[in-house]
């Protein structure tokens, strides 16, 4: 129950309560329904709560080979994409944050350009190119398409993180005898670390859930968890398969977010976007 009192007047904050209830309806109720379905065996129309709870569909879902295959493909994809993205973007982010070079702003914008167009249109265009390159329905094809989507997050947040590192700290390290590389390793990276970690985590999670690209490029051979979930929801009469997968899919992001909150101060995300 959320009860909030305005600290200044001491009067009950009806507005706050109204917003809280609205948020609960919009966010929590659908989650609750999916959650309930996942643990339901029988739930027929007039009844408000299911007639029979049980784990039968968990059993059935988890015993399917395609579910496990999709899970491992998703994990492998997310890990590969995140690693590649970090490899490309972090040095670039450092360059954008610290160095002056001709065309800097243009390059910076080019990393963000993939988000300036309607996503699906862009995907279809890329798919046409991939078709010629024989990348359709391959693991690396999906890696490439998902990589494009991660660039913005992986550039934007680390650039802000590197910019937020006090130049004087780096200079102080040079002053006591550290070379440029040592300064980067011992001062800049640890200072920017938590925020960059947040970017890596966000990238991993968003890649894990990315659906359109994975479906358009990967189908039918490469089926990730979200793609499989959509298949289940679209093609199966049994609601529970989709619900169980949804709940399973919800777990990694939940863990990631909890972890992120513990590791990073609340300011880091804001810093990332506020530049």
């Amino acid at each position: 129950m959320i009860r909030s009192y305005s600290s200044t007047s001491g009067r009950f904050d009806w507005m706050g309560l109204a917003f809280a209830i609205l948020l609960v309806i919009v966010i929590a109720v659908p989650l609750l329904v999916v959650f309930t379905w996942a643990f339901t065996e029988v739930w027929r129309y007039p009844s408000v709560i299911p007639q029979k709870f049980g784990l039968r569909f968990w059993d059935q879902t988890l015993s399917r080979a395609d579910v496990w295959e999709a899970l491992f493909i998703s994990l492998r994809l997310s890990a590969t994409v995140t690693a590649l993205s970090a490899l490309i973007c972090l040095p670039a982010a450092y360059a954008f944050a610290r160095m002056k070079f001709p065309g800097r702003d243009l390059f910076f914008l080019s990393f963000l350009a993939s988000h300036a167009f309607p996503k699906f249109g862009l995907l279809v265009a890329i798919a046409a190119i991939f078709l010629q390159l024989n990348l359709i329905a391959t693991f690396w094809g999906v890696v490439l398409i998902q990589l494009v989507g991660t660039l913005m997050l992986m550039i934007w947040i680390p650039v802000a993180a590197f910019q937020a590192v006090d130049r004087r700290m780096e200079e102080a390290a040079r002053d006591v005898g550290a070379g440029p590389l040592r300064v980067f390793w011992s001062i800049t990276l640890p200072q920017a670390g938590p925020t960059i970690f947040a970017a890596v985590l966000l990238t991993f999670v968003s890649t894990f859930y990315e659906t359109e690209g994975a479906w358009l490029i990967g189908a039918p051979q490469i089926r990730t968890m979200p793609v499989l979930m959509i298949n289940f929801i679209n093609n199966q009469v049994v609601v529970q398969y989709g619900a169980v997968l949804s709940v399973i899919l919800w777990v990694p992001s939940f863990i990631a977010l909890i972890f992120a909150r513990r590791v990073i101060g609340t300011g880091s995300f804001a810093k990332g976007f506020g530049a």
Binding site: R168, M169, A172, A173, D175, I187, P190, Q191
Partner: peptide
Amino acid sequence: GMVFQSHALWSH
């Protein structure tokens, strides 16, 4: 040896 206005201590 330089001492900066912002002290520039390494906070980590």
